[in-house]
Design a protein around this nucleic acid. Structure first.
Lengths: 131, 131
DNA sequence: GTTGTTATCAACCAATCGGTTGAGAAAGGG
DNA sequence: CCCTTTCTCAACCGATTGGTTGATAACAAC
């Protein structure tokens, strides 16, 4: 996995066990023991999943005697929706413009064919990954 | 990786190279060759990334002579934001209610302090909002 | 046909992932 | 003090990931 914030977040939610943990933590804080109870896996395995979620910034942990209650943090969830929504909107806006162009071509059907060359690509987000 | 739709989608976006591909496809459809050009990796490696994106339902491919233009599909992006937003909303709604309870308890404490200065057992609430 | 371009398939490799078991740390209660 | 509960750390293991190189398929152009 790449070591940037967004990669950690998407990786964390790529596992169904971790998504289930997030879903339950959205309802109430819980200890590792409580979170592990419904799963057919060891507490140690759940502890590893919690570590992944914590390093992604999706959860935080406090201390209560031996217990380490887990708390869902929403800031990284916000960043994820922001990323996904940005490119979804960008794509849908482009499709909308394309539809408009096609409609205009229908209107101008007596004219010559339009040549649409789109050689424009830019990237203001992540640059090329290091090899 | 688990073989369900959401796991494939989050796994696909967990890699910075694949996120960069998605970002560029949001601006314009592109062929594997065009997509591979800015990366310091082989065309075969990019082809593998495109396969991951396609199996996640994030892109589709058509045919144009030897070229296989890639097109960003937004439906799965929608499902991802729906999932993330659902649990973010759930958690934030819960925090909002908790704040209300704490505010009410503050009022009670102030009332108690006005009437009688007694020590009670309310040390169980770790509801401290993170900084 | 032959040549050139574009992209995928196949085999391989080191690193990582998701699980296991066993040991041990941290805290409270007898 | 010892004992129990709760949780993490460490080592291990098989499967998967993300890259490589080489071969090959599919198509255009000559």
């Amino acid at each position: 996995m790449a070591d940037d914030q967004l990669s950690r977040a998407f990786t964390a939610l790529a596992d169904p066990t971790r998504r289930d943990i997030v879903a339950r933590l959205s309802l109430a804080d819980a200890t590792p023991g409580q979170l592990a109870e419904p799963f057919a896996m060891s507490l140690q395995a759940v502890s590893k999943h919690l570590k992944v979620l914590e390093e992604a910034g999706l959860i935080s942990r406090t201390r209560d005697a031996q217990r380490r209650p887990c708390h869902l943090e929403t800031a990284v969830l916000d960043e994820m929706t922001a990323w996904v929504d940005r490119y979804r909107r960008s794509a849908e806006e482009r499709f909308r413009r394309l539809d408009a162009v096609l409609a205009a071509m229908d209107d101008d059907v007596q004219d010559d064919e339009l040549q649409d060359n789109h050689e424009d690509q830019q990237d203001e987000d992540e640059g090329a990954p290091s090899p």
